[in-house]
Design a protein around this nucleic acid. Structure first.
Lengths: 343, 343
DNA sequence: CTGAAAGCGCTAACAC
DNA sequence: GTGTTAGCGCTTTCAG
């Protein structure tokens, strides 16, 4: 690489001045052509375009971003990329943003609360706006962060005035589900609660408190469980001990785990016990029996966050939270309360 | 922004010269402190650090990238973000790259072959390197592209010398699976093939051709099916018509779809018929019966691609493809061939 | 050990 | 219509 002769496989990428030189015009003219300013003589414009195509020139987005003060890129901060729920949101954000010509920089914080704000700040400084998916940090931290990263959208956390919010109303969702079971005659219901510090789990629990108050005749017990298949699988003893005729799992995975165990134990679903999940994962409708669950289109949540965020980027303020309420998908895993508890 | 007075809520982000001014030093010194050059007097360095922390200054990564000619960012081009398989690879790449201080820009090409190369080029021009996950474009297009985006890693496509390659050996994997079934006594096996243009499907089919040649006593028929649950569900008639005692599905979803149908039809798995999947999705071990399938750690494929790519970025050439061979996860959905075909 | 100044590649006034 | 030029914010020789 030491010698000066032009190499066959050019090391230094083309830049705008190379094109300008080849076309015998100025950088500014090339820039105008690239950006479609009509003020350029058509002949010249065509010549420039031809040369660009011929040599395969692609402008440096970095330089462009620096000059423009905008990168047409947004950052998305995810607590855990391996969680399909967040993944669905990411996809929704991505598609919506891509349709508007924005690229997406992702950062997985690996559930580590401490580095979260730092990652967000770093990412924000390479992008034009931020989407925070279910941030884990404390509320004061979040508010302080939002102050500094505006414009930003926050998913599944409430904020002050400083960010766009899109969220799922788990509180209402779980009540809808409880009501579904009550309608089937169940009055002893187990809720297999999720991770201790999960906000969406808290929301469900709060919803159930409200529900208990409104319907004192139905007894709902909280059984700390977890969020995975195995957790559901393991929960059977506790469920049996309580004598539940119906179970609401923290999510579909837990529900399916429990159903798997029930099958092993020879307990029939829903004849002996009803089991419902939450989230409506793709597999839910194919399990046997098909799983009753609460559905919310997370892709749409992400897309909505992007739309509102775009408004912010463009300076059009729009600050009411967009709330998505999960809908009941009643399937075969829930049914009428058995006449006698003969489990 | 017309008036000159300093605004209370600063619109213009801090820049390095602001810090320099506050600290009474030059930009260069601030830069040195930020980048940890030890040559700076410790007192000054500390003062600068304090100020940076106090005012919450974060350097513009864009400017830094332009100046350095590197962005510490890689691009990942995915054909379809909603596909959990690609998603797993993305996650692997992301984690490995993040551990090395690299950020990840993602682009979903939405399965649109035409724009793929253009997206890749655009992304590459904002990043230091590229990862192409199972690109759809033709081989000549791919080779031409690789020439221009180096350094790049390609997953699940073979290339010439111009890129790092990590791939899954589906050809070997399907043969392992076929052998598992043969070992159980099956000699009439159906392969529920996947999407027409899927490369991994072709690989499986080629593997089976090899297998047929080596084991003429086992009859393997190809039943065009698809890649989804419903496809598996629908495949039952064709499977029955052929009289298969064992089925290899294109993937786990198809296998589970078929099993669901079999359950509905009262056909027992594996007593009446064995069913195996491919991919080992998380749910596979929890289905009933637990699904026999071929497992490959896609996260590790992604991580491997990153490791090799990093070598390339650092100029250390390393060009043999890294091949991952799927391993058999023998579970309950496959068993000995039934003595009589009484289906 | 520190500062001045020249870029990195592109855009956008402002002239002509 | 087209060119000149001054930045965008940071890094990095090169002097001192």
């Amino acid at each position: 690489m030491g010698n000066k002769r032009i190499r066959k496989n050019p090391v230094r990428p083309m830049r705008i001045s190379d094109i300008a030189e080849l076309a015998g015009v100025s950088n500014a003219t090339v820039s105008r052509v690239i950006n479609g300013f009509s003020s350029v003589n058509e002949d010249i414009a065509q010549r420039v375009r031809d040369i660009i195509k011929e040599v395969g020139y692609v402008p440096s987005q970095t330089a462009r971003s620096l000059s423009l003060g905008a990168s047409q890129t947004i950052g998305v901060v995810v607590p855990d990329l391996s969680n399909p729920m967040y993944h669905a949101v990411l996809r929704g954000v991505h598609r919506a943003a891509a349709a508007d010509g924005y690229r997406v920089l992702v950062a997985d914080t690996l559930e580590e609360t401490q580095g979260e704000a730092a990652v967000a700040l770093d990412i924000r400084h390479r992008t034009d706006a931020l989407v925070l998916i279910a941030p884990r940090m404390t509320r004061p931290e979040l508010l302080a962060l939002l102050m500094r990263v505006h414009p930003a959208a926050v998913i599944n956390r409430t904020t002050g005035e400083n960010a766009v919010v899109a969220r799922v109303d788990y509180e209402a969702g779980i009540q809808t589900l409880a009501d579904h079971l009550r309608g089937l005659g169940h009055t002893r219901i187990a809720f297999l609660s999720g991770p201790e510090h999960s906000r969406s789990n808290h929301d469900r629990q709060r919803g159930l408190e409200t529900y208990r108050a409104a319907h004192p005749e139905v007894e709902i017990v909280d059984i700390p469980t977890g969020s995975g298949f195995d957790d559901g699988h393991r929960s059977w003893e506790a469920v049996r001990e309580f004598g539940a005729t119906a179970v609401m799992a923290f999510n579909d995975l837990v529900a399916l785990g429990l159903i798997g165990r029930l099958t092993e134990e020879g307990v029939r679903v829903p004849d002996d016990i009803s089991v419902a999940g939450f989230d409506n994962i793709p597999f839910a409708r194919y399990s046997s029996p098909a799983l009753t669950t609460m559905a919310v289109d997370l892709g749409e949540v992400g897309a909505s966050a992007w739309r509102d965020l775009k408004q912010e980027i463009e300076g059009i303020a729009r600050r009411e939270a967009t709330v998505f309420t999960p809908e009941l998908e009643a399937r075969a895993s829930t049914g009428a309360k058995p006449l006698r508890d003969e489990i």
